[in-house]
């Protein structure tokens, strides 16, 4: 079996070069209730990471994964860079829950990949868009077990605007987000 090509860092400049026009607006063929996922990415000192590439991939509101594009960009995929405050924002539709092999039910969630200087390979995780009490049977929630750690992956609706979900990501140290391998 051939060995896979090793990963290398995206570096400090490349993230900027890769951006798509309107990459923070995730496209889907149909209409759906739009929502925004936004927050900041922090390092082990709590300093904002201002040079990350932040990519998202998700199901549509019915829980299906889109397999098309609008002629320019794929459906369902978001790509932005963080700004000088470490902030990202993705405008999308709220994904539905879906079923995996073996019948496992996955709660509404978005896959996130973070690439940056200092990351020799991507950090992968999933952010949940449902309250923690409703996701305990999700396969990832079960794999994590610990509620405090699981809480690092739960986005919270803004009290003033329920269409805005806030999720900050700490890469290392106190409050470190759970990252996954699959």
């Amino acid at each position: 079996m051939p060995k896979p090509t090793p990963s290398q860092t995206v570096g400090p400049f490349f993230a900027r070069d890769l951006l798509w026009k309107d990459g923070g607006i995730v496209l889907f063929p149909g209409r759906g209730d739009r929502m925004t996922l936004t927050g900041c990415v922090f390092d082990g000192n709590g300093a904002p990471i201002y040079d990350a590439l932040f990519e998202t991939w998700q199901a549509d509101p019915t829980g299906r994964f889109p397999s098309g594009h609008d002629g320019a960009r794929p459906y369902g995929y978001g790509r932005v860079s963080t700004d000088t405050d470490g902030r990202y924002a993705i405008e999308t539709v709220k994904p539905g829950s879906f079923t995996g092999p073996g019948g496992a039910t996955y709660s509404p969630q978005i896959s996130v990949a973070i690439f940056a200087r200092g990351l020799l390979k991507a950090l992968h995780t999933r952010v949940f868009l449902a309250p923690i009490d409703l996701i305990k049977d999700d396969p990832l929630a079960r794999a994590i077990g610990d509620l405090e750690r699981l809480r690092t992956l739960v986005a919270t609706p803004d009290p003033d605007d329920p269409k805005i979900y806030r999720w900050d990501v700490r890469l290392r140290g106190a409050g470190e987000a759970v990252f996954i391998e699959f």
Binding site: G44, L171, E176
Partner: peptide, 11 residues
């Protein structure tokens, strides 16, 4: 300062 300190969760 960017590498996670915790092991990855395997799924």
């Amino acid at each position: 300062l960017r590498a996670p300190a915790q092991p990855l969760v395997r799924v």
